[in-house]
């Protein structure tokens, strides 16, 4: 009975991580829909590609949850965006915030007990980070991790996560 309970708890935790990632993808799809509608030219092309990529990951997560016997969370009717993309700079700001949030959600999923889910989440993280770099060429040493602690030495290196 205890083993069964532990297995159920692991399954529930995995389901919760998948749900968190799915919720993040729902929000990303919404945000990129807004960005695409408010931009032109190459930025719109980039936003459309990102929209399609997040939609594909969203569908993959939905399928995983359904296959595990869960019920995928539905998207909200609307999302409160941290930035209203009225200018290209604001569109980039919003897109990079979205990518950062989705990266963090997938980082949680890389701790899954399911090896295939771990691999999928790690690949999704790489996609988010490279998309973000395409919009704004900035690189973090530990994408997805919480805000880094102060550097342990005076070498000037970026600090590892706490």
């Amino acid at each position: 009975m205890r083993a069964t309970a532990r297995a159920a708890a692991r399954g529930a935790a995995r389901g919760q991580d998948l749900t968190t990632a799915l919720a993040a993808e729902h929000a990303a799809v919404y945000a990129y829909g807004v960005i695409g509608a408010r931009t032109t030219g190459s930025l719109r092309v980039t936003a459309t590609a990102a929209f399609n990529a997040h939609r594909a990951r969203r569908d993959q997560l939905r399928a995983l949850i359904t296959a595990g016997g869960g019920v995928p969370v539905e998207p909200d009717a609307a999302y409160r965006l941290p930035v209203t993309p009225s200018t290209p700079a604001q569109a980039v700001e919003l897109a990079t915030l979205v990518e950062r949030g989705v990266t963090a959600a997938y980082l949680e999923l890389t701790a899954s007990s399911d090896a295939s889910v771990r691999r999928m989440a790690a690949l999704a993280m790489q996609e988010c980070v490279t998309r973000s770099y395409g919009l704004r060429p900035e690189i973090e040493a530990f994408p997805g991790m919480p805000t880094p602690a102060p550097a342990p030495s005076s070498s000037g290196s970026p600090a590892p996560p706490s």
Binding site: A111, R118, M125, Q126, C128, A141, F142, G144, M145, P161
Partner: peptide, 11 residues
């Protein structure tokens, strides 16, 4: 460790 390796891979 899985999370650390995944984060390093993203970088």
């Amino acid at each position: 460790l899985a999370q650390l390796i995944a984060s390093i891979g993203a970088c």
